[in-house]
Structures are given as C-alpha cells and as structure tokens.
C-alpha cells in the first residue's frame, strides 16, 4: 500500500522530553487519528513531518520523498493546521487571499472565499477580531484552498462548539471522497476521531504505543469491571492496564487472551488511551 506519510525511528531530544523511535504510516486514502495526552509528542511529531523541527534521527517520507528534500510544489500539496492560527492577525480575509496567492502555486481564491462564506467569516474584519473558532475555521479554509492532497491537522477542532466541530468533520468527509486524499489529524476530542478515522495512532511519553485500525480496537480490547478477587484470577498477559477503584477493579484486557466469565464491555478509543496513559500495569 502506498503511504502518504512514512515515519521510522524518529528521534528528537528536548530538555526533559524526547521522541523515541517513533514510527508509523499514513496510508494514501486514509484518515489517521493521532491521540495522546498533552506533552506526549503529537505536535513535535507533526512539526518534524512538516520540517518545523529538525529531528535528531530517523526517517520521514512524505509522498514517498524524504521530508528534508521536499520541494515547494510537494509542500504545497500538504494542507496544515497547526493548533494556533499562525496567520497574520492584522490582515483581513481579502489580504490573506492576496498573500496566499504568492505563497501557494495552486491557490484558488474562489474556493477560499467559498469556504469563508460557508464558515460565515467576515471579509472586512481583521483576523485578530475573529473568535478562536473563526480563526480555526480560517486556518482550515486556507489548508483546503490550494489543492492539498494531504491534510496534517494539529487539534483543528479545539476550542470549537459541537456544531462547528461537526461542520469541520463534514468538510473532512468531503475531502476524503477523493481516494488520493489522506489526513493525519491529532485531537483530544476522541469522539471526533471515532467518527472520522480509519486508523488510530497512540503516542505516550514520546513513544508510539500502537497504530491500529479503528475497528480492530474494539475487537482487540475490552473493559472488565470486577472485584479484586476476580481480578487476581485473571491471566496477567490478558491485562493491559487496570484501575483500582473504591468499589472494585476495572481493567483493559485483550479479548484474545481473556478467559474469564464476566462479560467485557466495549472499549472505545478514549478507554484504551486512558488505561494506557494512566492505568497501573500488572
């Protein structure tokens, strides 16, 4: 399968934090949801892919080319939303169109203004007068207006109300109608990712814990609610992590290895993330 993004052995050291041997891929035509708590390394990984951070080691390929050797026309095929707005706040929508025409080779003003209208972004107002949600929508409008084949989105729905988030998810669905298009999206709002993604990539403490097909997560993991005695009888290799509560125990277990009698609850992405990040290990 052809990859839009391929990362292997990515290493980046900061004081007090390091990305360690990060590896994953974003297959062409798929949506990969990137999850992990704050400071887990999502943004650093995304910045490394986009060339904003100089990695200390590892290999990053985008569209089959080594990331450092990407030309302007290759980068122009990537639409990025970087958490913060990152657009000149003194400018209005018309000014931004005027600037982007010279930044992106395939900039399409009519597409941009169509998105601006769809998002109800006022044309005369300066970006700094926009609400946080409007700024996020503007960033997305820019990312979608230069013929991008790959979207790299760092928290694109943060700070948005559920209606606006749904609107953005709809636009991403539309974007994915083209089989050549791919998306890497990080978000804390796991319910958004459940709706949109084909794969889930989970990073914790600078290390990739897993990259799995979203649907296989449900098949692979289950949540067991039980007493301490029942927990003690479990095969330790079936338990990924557990929480000890006031009234009993709960554990994320591997369905394949679980042989107990209690029924397992469905583990959603958030459960899996929380057990891996905060659960105790056997």
């Amino acid at each position: 399968m052809e990859n839009a993004i391929y990362v292997a052995g990515l290493y980046k050291q900061f004081s007090g934090f390091a990305l360690q041997n990060v590896g994953f891929c974003v297959p062409k035509g798929s949506v990969v949801g990137f999850i992990g708590e704050n400071g887990a390394g999502k943004s650093t990984t995304i910045k490394s892919i986009l060339g904003l951070v100089n990695p200390d080691g590892g290999k990053i390929e985008v569209f089959g080319k080594a990331a450092p050797s990407l030309l302007r026309e290759d980068k122009n095929k990537i639409g990025a939303v970087l958490g913060e707005t990152c657009l000149p706040e003194n400018l209005n929508i018309k000014d931004i169109d005027g600037v982007m025409r010279h930044i992106f080779e395939n900039w399409n003003s009519s597409v941009f203004f169509a998105y601006a209208d769809r998002f109800s972004l006022p044309r005369e107002k300066k970006v700094k007068e926009f609400s946080r949600g409007m700024q996020q929508k503007l960033s997305l409008a820019v990312a979608l207006s230069h013929g991008a084949e790959l979207l790299i989105l760092d928290e694109p729905t943060s700070g948005l109300d559920p209606v606006a988030r749904d609107e953005i998810l709809d636009i991403l669905y539309d974007f994915m109608q083209d089989e050549e298009h791919s998306v890497l999206i990080s978000s804390h709002i796991v319910s958004d990712l459940e709706k949109l993604c084909d794969y889930i990539l989970f990073i914790h403490g600078g290390k990739v814990i897993f990259e799995e097909e979203k649907d296989s997560l449900r098949e692979k993991y289950g949540v067991l609610k039980c007493t301490a005695e029942q927990f003690a009888e479990l095969d330790p290799s079936a338990v990924v992590a557990y929480h000890r509560g006031e009234f009993g125990m709960s554990a994320l277990v591997l369905r394949e290895k679980y042989r107990g009698e209690q029924a397992l609850e469905t583990a959603n992405i958030e459960d899996v993330m929380l057990y891996y990040a905060r659960g105790e290990r056997v």
Partner: peptide, 12 residues
C-alpha cells in the same frame, strides 16, 4: 502570529 511555522509548512 507564529507566521514562520505556517510559512515553513507551506513550502517557504
């Protein structure tokens, strides 16, 4: 504005 981040990501 964090403009440099945007510009680099855009291929500048």
């Amino acid at each position: 504005d964090n403009w440099d981040k945007f510009a680099l990501a855009a291929g500048v």
